[in-house]
């Protein structure tokens, strides 16, 4: 039941009319479909793939541009690094009308067969982070939305992109992954890393688990596309040019998937 002057969002909740504290956005500033990079410096690059776009807000690590792709309204908002700032972004964006969130990020490859330049479509995430457990007990699965995963997969096939479908790992400590031997909890870090590798986890990143868990709680649609930008075991990484080219492919995959997702607002 809508309150006076309130309008209902896609899931029957009430949209917030006020400017959100951190992202500095209000109802009407964004579309229902939001692409979430970590890096505010990547927002403009992603928006260059829209047919039109304008800057609507910028505060702290949260930079937002809204526009259109093939007639479909789309928004891009950076989350900053890590699950704490990603949770804030998702909550405040959902308050002002976002109902689909697709992370567009980079990651480190973890398997023999995940090579730099390939895209990983996450079906779920390992919750090796502290934010999502302040929402839901650890036993709850960090799972991407089924229809979003399928839309991304269809888009990857249509665009002829090398991709993998599977579980990713979300961590809080970047250097705990890169230099585990320096950490006081080196044994735990190594032991768990080995378990994820044996369990078939495809790549390591820093935001997906919280986006999926908070998304389940907020009853919004979530997904993630992670570009494998580095490979610790092989010592490989992408050049700046390769990175741009591959990130561009990730963005296209996400934008084309948005055409399969109904506008709900």
């Amino acid at each position: 039941m809508p309150k006076e002057d309130g309008i209902e969002d896609a899931k029957g909740g009430l949209l917030d009319e006020t400017v959100q504290y951190h992202v500095q956005l209000k109802k009407g500033d964004i579309s229902d479909f939001v692409i979430l990079p970590g890096d505010p410096g990547r927002v403009e690059f992603i928006a260059e793939h829209f047919d039109k776009a304008e800057l609507v807000a910028e505060n702290r690590e949260y930079k937002t541009m809204t526009g259109e792709y093939k007639g479909r309204p789309v928004t891009v908002t950076s989350t900053g690094i890590g699950c704490p700032s990603a949770a804030i972004a998702l909550e405040e964006l959902a308050n002002v009308g976002a109902s689909t969130f697709v992370r567009c990020g980079t990651s480190g490859g973890m398997q023999e067969y995940t090579r730099v330049g390939e895209k990983v479509i996450a079906t779920g995430a390992v919750r090796y982070e502290g934010t999502s457990i302040q929402y839901m007990p650890i036993e709850f699965p960090a799972v991407a939305s089924h229809d979003m995963v399928l839309a991304l997969k269809n888009s990857a096939i249509k665009n002829n992109l090398d991709h993998h479908l599977g579980i990713v790992q979300s961590k809080d400590s970047f250097y705990g992954q890169h230099n585990p031997e320096k950490m006081p909890i080196a044994d735990e870090l190594r032991q768990k890393w080995d378990a994820w590798v044996k369990g078939g986890v495809l790549c390591s990143e820093m935001e997906a688990a919280t986006i999926f868990v908070v998304g389940s709680y907020r009853k919004v649609r979530t997904g993630a596309v992670l570009l494998v930008a580095g490979d610790q075991a092989r010592g490989e990484s992408l050049t700046k040019e390769e990175y741009k080219e591959n990130m561009s492919e990730s963005v296209k995959m996400i934008l084309d998937s948005s055409l399969e997702i109904e506008v709900e607002i």
Binding site: R127, I138, E139, P141, A142, V143, V149, K192
Partner: peptide, 10 residues
């Protein structure tokens, strides 16, 4: 470990 998600096959 418990952080790993129990997912059905897509």
């Amino acid at each position: 470990p418990i952080e790993f998600p129990a997912l059905a096959d897509i």
